[in-house]
Design a protein around this nucleic acid. Structure first.
Length: 513
RNA sequence: GGCGAGGUAGCUCAGUUGGUUAGAGCACAGGACUCAUAAGCCUGGGGUCGGCGGUUCGAAUCCGCCCCUCGCUACCA
């Protein structure tokens, strides 16, 4: 069994500034990546930017800049977002890098060799202002002109030489693939959409353009650049040094275990991507998870509504762990989720500050006052103590299963319930009473609760990495030991040296500000 | 229009193959305690489980009809 795990975010189109949707995809992927690491997997976590296309080319021109230099600036916005979000990505790929060019040319050549690409003509009603083709039923006559129904802009009949990918012949193979890999598309509700779509029959896919030049040139025909999705999707194997399929990175990490994407790009990942790969005689990824959208007060965020929630602003104001926790706790992965500042504050205060944060605070403070600030070592535990610890340990297989099924919300719920339980345990055990009548018993209680704080912190680490690390550092627990083996081990805390000082973990958010 | 998902406490949601007084967290109210970020713990109020009808000894759970919300219906990403 291989202990490797390859997870990706979408690569982001950097023409706009990073928004909540980008942050959400990245945070979700980061949580799974971190989780697999504490499960002791060798993890490769990839994110990056998708930089080609007409839009970027035009904007570069407008700004009077060379497209590559322009992209360097845009891409940096997203690279700094990875720092801001505290992502643990191992690599950051850009589609303008040499390694990606070689990779795309590599897959192109494979598709040529397999006979899946042919040169044809792409024709349709095109709107220059919308930069989009429309179907017959999407246009109407108006004042003698043909216009788009949706945008009202003029369309004209355009014919363009284009290379096509023979997507139409892959329908049956895809359906068979979905059938044999029932968890390839998650959540399952989205799988139905994809299957139904493929069942209706697929058309060949235009995969080159001559109308602009900012892209990877088609080999032996420089009039064309390779178009969007074949270019963008290939990033996932470019990072593994494709087309060299014999190197260890490719061998260890392909096929990818999990592509985290937004539901809006599901089709490209669940249909085009496996079709490209099958045609190129490569394995499709193991799983594509399409998450929902983040709405603001039940509405799509838009400038006109003035309800945009900017991840960077929220992080600056409340902290990165707070945003990470809130997004994945409150939004059910796979469904659209509504967020609001009120809920954010509520969530930070009740779960993070009052529950987990205060648990740590009250216990550390008690130890400081009553135990010379050292963790007591009394392993003479009674039934209640053991029950508390065992309950968490016995739940580990269940927790692992939840995360491997991307059931993130349930995972958080279970882990948080340990924090509730620990608070109750501390209350009921009354170490402040025991210190007067049975000092040994008090020590056993503190030993137990510290073990539990350690364990909860490890489980919570993928979600709130900064805060949990602070707690573990307070315990003089080295970060390299943040893994599942350390949960079962009761002998890995130092009882001889003093605890480090723990500042307030999560400040409560007051109503005014 | 076609296909699909869903409507459960003020809010966010759990409810396995139909089975005893429908659950959790948050929010709200009261109580005892004090180690703590006036946090934590205990107790409580609050729901004709979208509507109507049917199957059944028994339905949030199965069937039918209706109402409402949302998603997908290909080449901007």
């Amino acid at each position: 069994m291989s202990k490797n795990f390859y997870i990706t975010t979408p690569i982001y189109y950097p023409s706009g500034k990073p928004h909540m949707g980008h942050a959400y995809s990245s945070i979700v992927a980061d949580i799974f990546a971190r989780f697999k690491r504490i499960e002791k997997y060798e993890v490769l976590f990839l994110t990056g930017t998708d930089e080609h296309g007409q839009k970027i080319q035009k904007e570069a021109k407008k700004n009077n800049k060379d497209p590559k230099i322009f992209c360097d600036e845009l891409s940096d916005n997203f690279r700094s977002l990875t720092k801001k979000l505290n992502l643990s990505n191992d690599d950051f790929i850009r589609t303008t890098e040499t390694r990606h060019y070689e990779s795309v040319i590599g897959i192109w050549n494979r598709l040529i060799d397999s006979g899946d690409i042919y040169l044809g003509k792409y024709s349709g009603w095109y709107s220059v202002s919308d930069e989009a083709f429309y179907e017959k039923d999407e246009i109407e006559d108006k004042d003698g002109n043909k216009v788009s129904k949706s945008s009202g802009s003029r369309v004209e009949w355009l014919e363009e030489e284009s290379y096509f990918f023979k997507l139409s012949i892959w329908g049956d193979r895809l359906l068979e693939f979905y059938k044999n890999n029932p968890d390839f598309i998650l959540p399952s509700s989205r799988k139905n959409e994809v299957v139904k779509f493929v069942e209706k029959g697929l058309k060949d896919l235009s995969i080159s353009r001559t109308s602009f030049s900012w892209g990877i040139p088609v080999p032996k025909n420089n009039k064309h650049v390779i178009y969007v999705w074949l270019d963008a999707l290939t990033n996932y194997i470019s990072a593994l040094n494709f087309p060299d399929v014999t190197n260890t990175k490719f061998k260890n990490f392909w096929p990818a275990d999990l592509h985290i994407i937004g539901k809006d790009i599901l089709r490209f990942h669940a249909i085009f991507w496996p079709a490209f790969l099958l045609a190129a005689k490569l394995s499709p990824p193991k799983r594509v998870f399409g998450h929902g959208w983040i709405l603001s007060d039940d509405k799509k965020m838009s400038k006109s509504l003035g309800n945009i929630l900017d991840p960077i602003e929220i992080i600056n104001k409340y902290g990165v762990d707070q945003l990470r926790y809130y997004l994945v706790k409150e939004v059910s992965l796979g469904n659209d989720g509504s967020i609001s500042m009120d809920n954010l504050k509520n969530c930070i205060n009740s779960d993070l500050a009052n529950n987990y944060g205060n648990l740590c605070q009250r216990v550390f403070s008690f130890i400081k006052k009553n135990c010379n600030n050292k963790i007591p070592e009394n392993t003479n535990l009674n039934k209640k103590d053991k029950n508390l610890l065992d309950n968490l340990i016995n739940n580990l297989p269940h927790l692992i299963k939840l995360m491997n099924n991307q059931n993130l919300n349930e995972y958080i719920k279970v882990v948080l319930s340990f924090s509730f339980e620990a608070n109750k345990y501390f209350n009921d055990s009354e170490p402040w009473t025991e210190k007067k009548k049975n000092h040994k018993r008090m020590e056993a209680i503190l030993f137990t609760i510290i073990q539990q704080i350690k364990n909860i912190s490890i489980l919570l680490n993928p979600i709130v990495p900064d805060a949990t690390k602070k707690v573990l550092t307070t315990l003089n627990f080295p970060s390299k030991n943040i893994n599942f083996d350390s949960i079962k081990n009761m002998n890995n805390l130092n009882h001889k040296i003093e605890l480090n000082n723990l500042e307030i973990l999560f400040r409560k958010i007051e109503d005014d500000n």
